[in-house]
């Protein structure tokens, strides 16, 4: 699936052709360097490895630097693969920009790292609804998880039972957002709706409408 690497800038709203206001996420897409092209013969599958957002050479390991040198690119922070993405007419070391991959109206999936919430209770983490009433003898159970199992029969708590714990800070994919607008000079993509993670977080954006690009 074709796609690119982006950075979440923030949310705002724009008006569409009918005058309706649409909430959008602004995604900055730096031109992504093709840092490796994997093929069935050499690697067992077809993929394109993209890299974006420069970093200092000093903070790059020699091994990685060698890898980027092959593509004739400076070291990048975010490197990721897109399976079965064959950018025709592009070669190792070329840069892909927004308009190469996306057009307005395309459906996209966006992958990002969600905001870390720390140690949270079960209501925030698993959308439990809490226990009971505010009255009838309950006094501090409003956000409690409730019973966690049966009695002497299993005599244990089942694995995978939803409980409080660390939440957020994990890979989340939001599917079927659509491309609202593209600003080619400033390399900006507007996608309808929200996207995982903080402002400034890195995103992987898949284009579902096209399997590859011409």
């Amino acid at each position: 699936m074709s796609g690119l690497i982006g950075k979440k800038v923030g949310m705002t709203s724009v008006f569409d052709d009918l005058g309706r206001s649409i909430p959008v996420t602004v995604i900055e897409i730096e031109p992504c360097v093709i840092s490796q092209i994997k093929t069935e013969e050499t690697d067992g599958y077809n993929a394109v490895q993209l890299a974006a957002f420069s970093k200092r050479e000093k903070t790059t390991t020699k091994a990685l630097k060698g890898h980027f040198d092959k593509a004739g690119s400076e070291p990048k922070k975010y490197v990721t693969e897109f399976r079965d993405f064959i950018p025709e007419g592009f070669e190792l070391g070329d840069e892909l920009t927004v308009e190469d991959v996306f057009t307005v109206g395309d459906l996209v999936d966006v992958v990002g790292i969600s905001k870390g919430r720390g140690f949270t209770g079960v209501m925030k983490r698993h959308n439990f609804s809490g226990v009971g009433d505010a009255t009838h003898g309950q006094h501090d159970r409003a956000r409690a998880p409730g019973a966690i199992g049966n009695a002497s029969d299993p005599s244990r708590v089942f694995k995978g039972k939803k409980m409080p714990g660390r939440s957020g800070n994990e890979r989340v994919k939001i599917q079927n957002l659509s491309v609202a607008k593209i600003f080619t000079e400033s390399n900006i993509l507007l996608v309808t709706g929200g996207v995982p993670g903080r402002n400034g977080g890195y995103l992987k954006i898949f284009n579902k409408s096209k399997s590859d690009i011409a």
């Binding site: 800038v9 705002t12 724009v14 008006f15 602004v26 600003f183 400033s186 900006i188």
Partner: peptide, 12 residues
């Protein structure tokens, strides 16, 4: 924030 302003500028 800069880029966000840029987009809002097109609407305002």
């Amino acid at each position: 924030m800069d880029k966000l302003k840029l987009i809002e500028q097109t609407v305002i």
